[in-house]
Design a protein around this nucleic acid. Structure first.
Lengths: 185, 185, 185, 185
DNA sequence: GATGAATGAGCATTCATTCAT
DNA sequence: AATGAATGAATGCTCATTCAT
């Protein structure tokens, strides 16, 4: 959507470097990182960032979309698994554990008061809805869990368990409790 | 703890106006709201804000502490209830529903990477720990739910269900699901 | 010039307290001391300062004039002494040693780029001119030392020897050298 | 020591313009000149000033150091002269006459209650000590004049004779008197 | 295309001064 | 008269964005 024609090799490389630097910086410190700092980490000048992304907000979007796309991939993998229930929970855990951008992505997932990254967000939710329906049809998830609840729970768990200090075991334990709430009694 | 000596009537009124404006503004937009904007909303000059709060961060703290104190009150009320299980869940719901400051309070509840409001935060957690233990002793909550999990879940639910558009019924429904995860199977 | 009619006793006392606080504060930190700080040190509210001095600058003037008047007294005492030469040098030393306000008074003594405190400044210089003339007539001071030179030298010595760390002996030694330059060869 | 790598031509030109504007502004009004005013006089935006000098204080330092370095050059020239006595006095006069920044440099020369520009200040004093010693060895300066006295006298004369209105002749005359005090009787 | 210098609006904070209590 | 709360202009500094090199 940003680039309309093939980029020169060095331009593409720079775009990638900027995006990676942005992902890391935003994940660590949120949107308040100065753009100059991102440029510095990417090893380019601020002008170069603007060649590839028209505003800082667009760069932020791009970083989020990048993450969303990885998650869509996760969801599609999960859709191909044999057992819908375990696949669903495994997907959730993976999504949260490898989610990437911290609070900022979570905001995007909720999509209120923040930028719209509509197309990929919608795609991701579509995939998740599919996973949920299959797991419910399979009897692994209670029937009264609506997609809307799931979104909120994912967001919440995502935000709540994203802290530098938490260990994988601790995160898994908290997950297990929340996941239990989603199962049929 | 905040005012050490009686304030003149007009001063107290202004302090209250500033704090209210700050609470609303911070709740809606996070700490990035310009202080001048808060002053404007409170109908005072920026200097007046500084008469009552030495820095913007102090004002932010004060807003959070204000909320924490309300929640401590909720917790103490819940502690006086007869049935520990229902009291526990009712407290959680009330805390989240009437919590006030959005993401910023949640940050404080998690207390990493953010300002410390240590004393009241600690007090609140002490109260919550007490409620949890009584509910567990009563068999209303699964035994393997650790205070640490509870903190994360509260934070997550808090963040996840704080959106302007959500209805009370929707919130209650999501709560119910998460709460079910905390019950013994 | 400020008070046109006798003040009530408490008002006069407050005026004195403010002026003393101002003298000390200005002496220590220059004109940049906040007026509120002076008020605090004087144990009054800032409004009270304004009742006695219409602006901060006026207060600063008043503090300087206060010092100038003490020096005029020194000069008049010196004028009554028997030996004009020693009296002259003793006056200089006393003026510098007990001068009070540091650089700010010095500015006034030079009276460029700063506020005019014309009448008392003029009076002081008149007295000093008299002392100088008598010492020159007596042969204790070289004839080509003009009042203008003397002003500069006083200012310079004043500024140069006003440091918290300097000892009286050190100051006297530097004085002695400069004073020797004023003597006939 | 200031620029560590070659600057673009326009950047160097702007840096120079800012530094010149700062020198003039600080000389005329002291450190209280608003930085925006300096930027305006230099014909640049305030951000540009900050690109070259990280804080206002750093800019102030730079202006002082610039002057100190010129004086060190003067001192080194004087050290190469044949007759130590006249060279010493000529240096003093030149230092004061062409010194540049008024009271602010003088503060640096005295180095109390103000910013340290230690390295160049120390260098300058080392040079001056050398000149003094040679002149004393040559019998042109009284033996009891200590470097410490000299510092004070230079500071004082510097401050005292820096006024917009003074003529060169007047300054020289005042110098002559003070200098006479330094000679052996 | 890339660079990084320049811009300038915006923000937190201070403080002389005014005025309600 | 005194108090001290309120005001708001001013200041140092930041950072998204533009543009000359």
């Amino acid at each position: 959507m940003t680039e309309t024609r093939p980029l020169r090799a060095d331009a593409r490389r720079n775009r990638e470097r900027v995006l990676n630097a942005a992902r890391e910086a935003f994940a660590a410190e949120g949107i308040s990182v100065p753009l100059d700092e991102i440029a510095r980490r990417a090893g380019v000048g601020p002008g170069t960032v603007y060649r590839h992304f028209p505003t800082k907000e667009a760069l932020f979007h791009a970083a989020i979309v990048d993450n969303l796309e990885r998650m869509i991939d996760f969801a599609r993998e999960a859709a191909r698994a044999d057992e819908p229930g375990p696949a669903f929970f495994a997907f959730l855990e993976r999504m949260v554990a490898e989610g990437g951008l911290k609070r900022d992505l979570a905001e995007a997932l909720g999509s209120h008061d923040t930028v719209e990254c509509s197309a990929p967000t919608q795609q991701l939710w579509d995939e998740i809805d599919g996973l949920l329906r299959r797991a419910q049809d399979d009897g692994a998830i209670r029937a009264d869990l609506r997609p809307t609840d799931l979104k909120r729970i994912i967001r919440g768990v995502f935000l709540a368990t994203h802290s530098p200090e938490i260990t994988d075991d601790e995160r898994r334990h908290t997950f297990a409790i929340v996941f239990d709430g989603m199962r049929p009694r």
